[in-house]
Computed example of a mutant assay.
Amino acid sequence: MNAHHGTESFDVIVVGLGGLGSAAAWHLAASGHRVLGLEQFSFGHDRGASHDTSRILRHSYHRPDYVRLTRHAYDDWAHLERSADERFVTTTGGVDLCPRDSSIPLTDYWQSLDAEGIPYELLDADEVRRRWPQISVPEDTTAMYQERTSIVPAARSTAAMQRLAVAAGSQLRDNTPVTAVRHGAHGVEVDTPGGRFSAGQVVLCTDAWANTLLAPLGREIPLTVLEEQVTYFTPTDPAPFAPESFPVWIWLDEPCFYGFPCYGEATVKAGQDCGGPEVGADARSGSTDLDLLDRLTRFMGERFPLSGRPIRSKRCLYTLTPDRDFILGPVPGAERVLVGLGAAHAFKFAPTLGRMLSELAADPKLADTEAYTTFRLDRPALTDSQYPVNWMT
């Protein structure tokens, strides 16, 4: 592409440097591309979804294609650990707890694991209580245990991928918001308050802010942004909640809750999935929601009575597609612009999706292969206004 007068030119510009964008910048640079990464806030900010500590890495999913993708996720986290010379994966095992008449069928999960040959155990309520006396479940509860479920650190691993991207030759700039993206036949131009940049391709990993840049390109995504909340509890005796004694857990019902053993400190972290209020990307409270706190505290007192009292809460954004599938592909009609969006369950896949975006940038024909077609921007969930919303994962 011929650079605009006074602009800097790159092979690929990555916009948004949370987990997905940082992973994409790293893989692109490691593949030999000249990469510019632009982040509108400071590195490590808490305005999106890649801050704070723990995230769940698991095989347990409701569809075989996602279970298949988790195989790559474990491999790509191992590659990240080797590349950064740091440990990120803490294996705890994980238990999915499903009460009778749950609105989220456990059958979908174990059948998907069966389809991909992933081992698991089905447990009744007595066995759950025997293995983990910290958990109080109703008699009619069924559970599924998977031994490889793990914890990965959000902020620390994102920072590591940024360091690797820089070491591979990327230029990363924070506090540099993108105000416009212009797609042309031979390349893309990106405007910021500090100047204009050009590239052969742009990768947008802007999550809740995606439509700000996509709308002028003629494509808006039907996104719902929720302001979610996690809370940390202080058990009187942390030992029973240590990672070697207590699993990551998910309560499969509506409402759906999830939580972690003690990780990095003597607290137990828990939250509700898709329970927060709808907000705008730049219109959020950032403060503790007392209704969410009360709902979670009552649940924890009933199901995890030794978890203790809540001591602090943190907010984050969930950016949801109607089908809660990822977005991973080119913008129709503006194919030099690629979008990576995680639909509020992607951090476990961050190194994998970053690699896939890098591979797609190198070979656009991959957009028509099985690994990518589920996540296209022109799928019915993103184009049919009557598409039924389903946020189950």
Rank of each mutant, 00 (worst) to 15 (best):
R312M: 12
S313L: 06
S313G: 13
K314I: 04
K314Q: 06
R315Q: 10
R315F: 00
R315Y: 01
C316R: 01
C316M: 07
L317I: 14
L317D: 01
Y318L: 00
Y318F: 15
T319D: 15
T321N: 04
T321Q: 03
T321R: 03
P322G: 02
P322F: 03
D323C: 04
D323N: 08
D323L: 09
D323F: 05
D325F: 06
D325V: 01
F326Y: 07
F326H: 15
F326D: 09
I327R: 10
I327G: 12
I327C: 13
I327K: 02
L328C: 14
L328V: 05
L328S: 10
L328F: 04
G329D: 01
G329S: 10
G329K: 15
P330V: 02
P332T: 09
P332N: 15
G333V: 14
E335S: 10
E335W: 14
E335V: 11
R336A: 12
L338G: 12
L338H: 02
V339Y: 01
L341R: 07
L341K: 11
G342K: 04
G342M: 06
G342D: 15
G342W: 04
G342S: 13
G342Y: 01
A343H: 09
A343N: 06
A343C: 12
H345S: 08
H345L: 01
H345R: 13
H345V: 12
A346W: 03
F347R: 00
F347H: 03
F347E: 03
K348E: 04
F349M: 13
F349H: 14
A350Y: 05
A350V: 15
A350L: 02
P351F: 05
P351K: 04
P351D: 08
T352P: 10
L353E: 02
L353D: 07
G354K: 08
G354C: 13
R355N: 06
L357H: 04
L357Y: 14
L357C: 05
S358W: 11
S358N: 07
S358D: 04
E359Q: 08
A361K: 04
A361R: 05
A361F: 15
A362C: 11
P364N: 12
P364W: 13
P364K: 06
L366F: 09
L366W: 12
A367G: 08
A367T: 08
A367L: 02
A367V: 11
D368P: 00
D368G: 11
D368V: 03
T369D: 08
E370A: 13
E370L: 15
A371V: 08
Y372W: 03
T373W: 02
T373K: 12
T374D: 15
T374L: 12
T374H: 08
F375R: 05
F375P: 07
R376W: 08
R376K: 11
L377Y: 06
D378Y: 09
P380H: 15
A381H: 13
A381M: 05
L382C: 13
L382W: 06
T383A: 12
T383W: 00
T383H: 02
T383R: 10
D384M: 14
S385I: 07
S385V: 15
S385A: 07
Q386C: 14
Q386P: 00
Q386W: 03
Y387Q: 02
Y387G: 00
P388L: 09
V389K: 12
N390L: 01
W391D: 00
W391T: 03
W391M: 07
